[in-house]
Design a protein around this nucleic acid. Sequence first.
DNA 1: GTAGAATTCAAACGAGCGTTTGAATTTCGG
DNA 2: CCGAAATTCAAACGCTCGTTTGAATTCTAC
Lengths: 238, 238
Amino acid sequence: MAASRPARKSVAIDATSADTKTRILDTAESLFMEHGFEATSLRSLTTAAGVNLAAVNYHFGGKEELFQTALRRRLDPMNQERIDLLESLEREAGGKPLSCEKILFAMLIPALKLARDEKRGGKNFLKLLGRAYADPAPFIRQFLHQQYVEMIARYKEAFLKALPQLSRHELTWRLHFVMGALSYTLAGTDALKLFAQVTAVDKYDDEMLLQRLAPFLVAGLKAPPLADSRKLELVNAG
Amino acid sequence: MAASRPARKSVAIDATSADTKTRILDTAESLFMEHGFEATSLRSLTTAAGVNLAAVNYHFGGKEELFQTALRRRLDPMNQERIDLLESLEREAGGKPLSCEKILFAMLIPALKLARDEKRGGKNFLKLLGRAYADPAPFIRQFLHQQYVEMIARYKEAFLKALPQLSRHELTWRLHFVMGALSYTLAGTDALKLFAQVTAVDKYDDEMLLQRLAPFLVAGLKAPPLADSRKLELVNAG
DNA sequence: GTAGAATTCAAACGAGCGTTTGAATTTCGG
DNA sequence: CCGAAATTCAAACGCTCGTTTGAATTCTAC
């Protein structure tokens, strides 16, 4: 009967039949964000979505596929926009290297636009993404790698031109730090509470957040690489 | 019978009876690091440790308590050392504010020393810690908060004096970014592979890693706060 | 040497998990 | 309006999980 995925209607291309499917996707985005992949059960998910337990396997094939589909729905357009934005900036500049700020902003702006767009998941998705970055599950890591490898490669080339004092190797590490601060920040409010009682005035606001993050990251990227002679004294530091 | 925790020997204070217990702790550190809390089963853990399944509940009370004990074994001394180190630097300086670099190094050095000390968990523990930072489980978040709140508070005061151009509020965010980059970095090699094919020459080396991280973070901390007039153009960025 | 406590052990418990099944229901082109 | 395809549904399957149990074993103080 419902052995493999059905062949989606006969004539109509898309649109309809999406009701159950989208309800599942929206709920998945929200619950995976809140509890992570492992801790979110299909039973609680389908109950929250108001659909039958078997619907996930019918429409998506399984829990892992659902997770990937939920991520892809937001991630694909966002990373494509990042690439497009970078290319259009490079075209504008006409051969001249872009500034470090501009490149970084091109990276951050699509994420911020997504966070603002409540209809496309809003902040929930960025939290989900931040959590996924830190998830040890191999299928998640492999999926993210596949999603990110092209975008990161392009940005690395751009940064390399903008920061000629950095070796390719050094830049790799710095992008790693950048992604660390970014994903940790996106992953949410909870972590922040480790360090500060967030006041009511200082509501969690993604725009303000990236406004604060950007100068921090730009300065970090531009920092001169540590010369050998200036290496830290580590052994007898007490 | 073995209802609650036993009253640990009658005369001898400690030392012995530790064999099974330590084997469990060591294995827990290694497996929790590799797979995370949820994905590590007590069955695989006890099998790997060569002890009986029930030993975890007998010696620790349960899985969550084991996790906390494993973390605490390394975290308590490390954070205490961080505090001691900062205080000794402040005493040395005699009232004058410390440099941003020195404060940051005081934070990083105990972590690095731990990473070098294979007998006390080595790099495994830092990975475990990095993972725990991103774990959504409430009991983990609460535990980390409790472990970190004092140390962070002290360092925040120190940074505040070293960076008078930053408001308390701005500094809170920057420390958040710092911890993000740090935990993401500590969490390990896997994430790095998102951005770079790590060459054989560039072996994962915690010392080298922090040597690269420190200048990045110092520059980010010292960056001038973003003036209102310089705010990013976000809406029509395409 | 023996009593009593501490520890180990194999076995089972109960619950929750992702997934599968096959019948009931809905949808919709002809 | 009918018949085939798509979808929904309740129920169950098989498995793994953390924990508990109570007997067997080891340790240790007297």
